[in-house]
């Protein structure tokens, strides 16, 4: 049995913070927040040892509400701050929470380098295919043809597949879920946080206010229903042709591999440097 919403609320929400939060009713960000908290509960991690770093966007507001060590950085830069925190105190569990624009437009360089570098960090990317906070402009994951406030004639660029990008860039663990598949999201975040090395969980989410409405997909419930229908498991996807997969969302674990983790490798460098100095 997953912990009740009330139990999570009492345990993890900041009671000294003046609520309400900034999210629209029905926003997928809340489901992702719930998934993160359920994963943390299951892992029995101490609140004092968790650092939650975010960038700027609707998604970026999540740390404000949660009773961890929380860091709301600049747009696109959550992973850079998280890198400093983790290297300075490797005992901390460091999670970066980002939006699609945050992680793959302005912060795209940091994402691929964090994946390549393979520090022991967890990245959760809430992909709602839009710049939610700034009023619905197109993002690097907006589909071709979509209507946004900066593509009223139809979008003419092509979307990134974030999870596949992270695999290619070298992350140790990469998975995808949607906010409809909340139980899967809980489990994938849990796995990501356990994984030594850089772990990415992309969660396809609904911004019905800025995206769904304008693209005739509808309200929150209708968007979630669409995610349900579009989802195929990694296993099933492997048996399908690329054309069949066009409008599908592949969910599950895309990669889980064991690579040297740079946070551990650095320990060796310290020993080597100390030995070198003693010799001198």
């Amino acid at each position: 049995m997953p912990p009740s919403i009330q139990a999570l609320t009492h345990r993890y929400l900041r009671h000294n913070k003046r609520f309400p939060h900034v999210w629209c009713p029905g926003c997928g960000n809340g489901i992702v927040m719930g998934a993160l908290l359920r994963a943390i509960t299951r892992l029995e991690l101490e609140k004092d040892n968790i650092v939650l770093a975010s960038g700027i966007g609707c998604s970026g507001r999540m740390p404000t509400y949660l009773d961890f060590n929380t860091l709301h950085t600049t747009h696109g830069r959550a992973l850079t701050f998280a890198t400093g925190v983790k290297l300075a105190n490797p005992a901390l569990n460091v999670v970066a929470i980002m939006g699609d624009g945050d992680a793959t437009a302005i912060g795209g360089n940091h994402l691929i380098h964090a994946a390549r570098r393979n520090l022991n960090l967890t990245a959760i990317i809430i992909n709602n295919s839009i710049y939610g906070m700034t009023g619905g402009q197109y993002s690097p994951t907006t589909p071709f043809g979509a209507t946004t406030t900066t593509s009223m004639y139809g979008h003419i660029e092509h979307a990134f597949s974030i999870a596949e990008l992270a695999v290619t860039a070298g992350a140790s663990f990469v998975a995808r879920s949607t906010v409809y598949h909340a139980a899967l999201a809980d489990q994938l975040i849990e796995q990501a946080m356990m994984k030594p090395g850089f772990a990415v969980v992309e969660i396809i989410s609904n911004c019905h206010v800025q995206y769904g409405r304008r693209n005739k997909i509808g309200n929150a419930v209708q968007m979630l229903t669409a995610f349900k229908e579009q989802a195929v498991t990694v296993k099933k996807a492997a048996t399908m042709e690329p054309e069949e997969l066009q409008d599908k969302i592949t969910i599950g674990v895309l990669t889980d591999r064991n690579l040297p983790v740079s946070t551990d490798e650095y320990k060796r460098i310290r020993e080597q440097a100390r030995a070198g100095q003693e010799k001198r």
Binding site: T73, T74, R77, T80, V85, A88, L92, Y266
Partner: peptide, 23 residues
Amino acid sequence: TFIQMEDEIASIGAVIGASLAGV
């Protein structure tokens, strides 16, 4: 700890993160 980052934006980000962790 020394780290060479992917650019200067990342460098100062990491520096701030490290300082927040007490270093």
